[in-house]
């Protein structure tokens, strides 16, 4: 199942609607990394609210996605991880280290805005 990627001013928003296969995750990663350059986006939000499980492959792909997008000059925020999912992930030792997270889409946008304004000041 393809994940729609929406462009919202300087940001890209990918909202995952249903459980994805490993293949879908890889596709999502590649699509985002490609589009972030094409649209000259400054931030990427991946919304995982709909997911009630995030296994190690999915988590690693999300982490790789975040690192790759950073190398392409933008920021990534993962938003909407459910409480149960978060705790299950941590118990499996998956902590998405160095990847920004936020409660939901709104918080994610606020976070990217703050990063943006910080960079503008610097």
């Amino acid at each position: 199942m393809a994940v729609p990627i929406l462009k919202q001013s300087n940001y890209l928003i990918a909202t995952i609607q249903a459980a994805l296969t490993d293949q879908d995750f890889v596709q999502l990663r590649d699509a985002l990394v490609e589009k972030v350059g094409r649209f000259r986006s400054r931030g990427v939000i991946v919304d995982v609210t709909a997911l009630d499980v995030l296994d190690s492959f999915a988590s690693r792909t999300l982490r790789d996605l975040a690192y790759m997008i950073r190398l392409r000059g933008a920021h990534t925020v993962i938003v909407g991880i459910q409480p149960d999912v978060a705790f299950a992930m941590v118990q499996l030792g998956i902590t998405l280290a160095d990847v920004s997270t936020a409660l939901d889409l709104e918080e994610g946008l606020a976070f990217l805005d703050s990063v943006d304004s910080e960079q503008a000041r610097a």
Partner: peptide
């Protein structure tokens, strides 16, 4: 420690 990490995943 796990609680701290899980909270971070929620953005807190």
């Amino acid at each position: 420690v796990q609680t701290v990490e899980a909270s971070r995943l929620l953005g807190a």
